[in-house]
Every structure is written in C-alpha cells, then in structure tokens.
Design a binder for these strands. Structure first.
Lengths: 112, 112
DNA sequence: ATCGGATATCCGGATATATGGATAAAAGGA
DNA sequence: TCCTTTTATCCATATATCCGGATATCCGAT
C-alpha cells in the first residue's frame, strides 16, 4: 500500500539522519558546530560531559556524514557539513512552540 | 558554556518531536496521515504490520500531540496535527539526497 | 626514544525501546 | 444480553542505545 521506494528512502532517512538527531546532546553539538568549527575539547567544555561521551557522539555524527573531522596537529577540528540541518531543527522548534502555545490556550480556557 | 535556555528547549524538542521521528514506521505513519486522515485499520494495511504495533506507534505520536485521534462509532480516525512536520522531513530528505550525490561523486573520482 | 596532551575506542552495565501475541475495552448490531 | 468489529493495553522477550572509566592511539615537543 505504501510506495516501496518511499519506504526504502524513509528507512535510509531514519538511519542516516533521524537517528542521529534522536539524542539531545548530539543536537547541542550540532548547534555548537553551527556557530563555529570546534575542537573536541571545546565541545567537552561547552556541554560539560566526559570526553569519551563527546567523542562517541561525534563518531555517530561523523559516520553519518553530518560533520567532518580534520586533524590539525594533535587536535581534531569538527565542522558541520550541511547547515540546512539547523534550519530543520529550527523548524521543529517552531512546531514545538506552536504546540506549547496551543496547550497554554487550552489550559486558560479550562480555568475560565 | 551553552545557553541553559537553549539546552532546556533542546531537551524538550528531543523528547517531544525528535524522539517521535526516530522510528521509520512512525515516519511512514506520518506520511500516510499527510495524504489523508486514516483509521487504524487502514494504517495496519498500508504498513503491513500487526495492529498492536501500529496502535503503539500511534499512541506515541498522540502523546506528543503530533496526531489527533477522534472516535467515530467503533472506529478511530487519526489526523496529522501540523503538516509542517512533513516539510521538515522533506527537508531532511533533501539533505540526504545531497549527501548521496556527494558520495557518488567521490566514488566516481576514485574510479578515474 | 620518550613523554604529555588530545582524541578515539573498548567494555560492562544500566536503561530504553521495539516487537507481536494475548487480552481487555469500547461500540454497534442482532 | 451476546456477539462481532475495532482499537488499546499488557506482557515477556529481544534489541538498541547510552554512559563513562579505563585504555589505546596519534602526534608534536624535548
């Protein structure tokens, strides 16, 4: 009933992008990299998480080609590949904001 | 280092929206509902999954206010609440498509 | 060659999530 | 009331994911 091509594309979309976005720390990393390229250490400090945790999340984003890593001497600099990803996240935030506004409206009506 | 307000908003974004999108079957359900409102049974047939599986996914989407359910006699009709969600998914598909095009280009260069 | 800083990977354990059969609940008809 | 259809929930199991300390690796400096 569902177009098999769409189904395949959605499975790919899920495994390559949606899954990567399904962790709040990874989303925060993406926002940090949107502002400017960062060393791993900078992200460790920005998110206040153990280095192994940051590195693991970066590995997941790297595997999916959402960020690139480039060695610069003894450090590694990470960059956001496609900044449209931030547009996507911002659009989701707008949807969320609409949702919250609706909830507030309903709550107010109940209080009348 | 990261704005605490942003951090809170991202956590909310994750739990209310991103998490819901982190399953291919739920994405397919959203696309189905984008075409037209559907009964549970229609989705069972469209996705070819057990009814309990579909109902569970619908419950997750309903909890997050991404879809609404309305009883109509003995059946229940589900509707997509905010069609911007499909815009978001389509934008991710474009990012994915760019990604795949780049991979193909690199592969071709390697073959020269 | 060795050392120290930076980063990646390993590993065990805790937690979360998906799955689908079985069952319950809701609603309408006989 | 009983039966059927439709949908939701329960349950046990399987799988995935996260976490962070410990360890390995990479690299430049001494």
């Amino acid at each position: 009933m569902i177009d098999p091509k769409l189904e395949l594309e959605i499975k790919l979309l899920h495994s390559r992008i949606c899954q990567a976005l399904s962790d709040p720390n990874r989303i925060l990393i993406l926002y940090s990299l949107h502002e400017k390229p960062c060393f791993v250490n900078e992200l460790v400090e920005a998110l206040d998480l153990p280095q192994s945790t940051i590195s693991r999340h970066l590995g997941i984003l790297r595997d999916r080609n959402l960020v690139t890593s480039e060695r610069d001497g003894s450090t590694v600099i990470y960059k956001l590949v496609d900044h449209r990803l931030i547009e996507v996240l911002d659009m989701m935030r707008e949807i969320l904001s609409t949702q919250l506004a609706n909830s507030a409206e309903i709550a107010n009506k109940l209080l009348d």
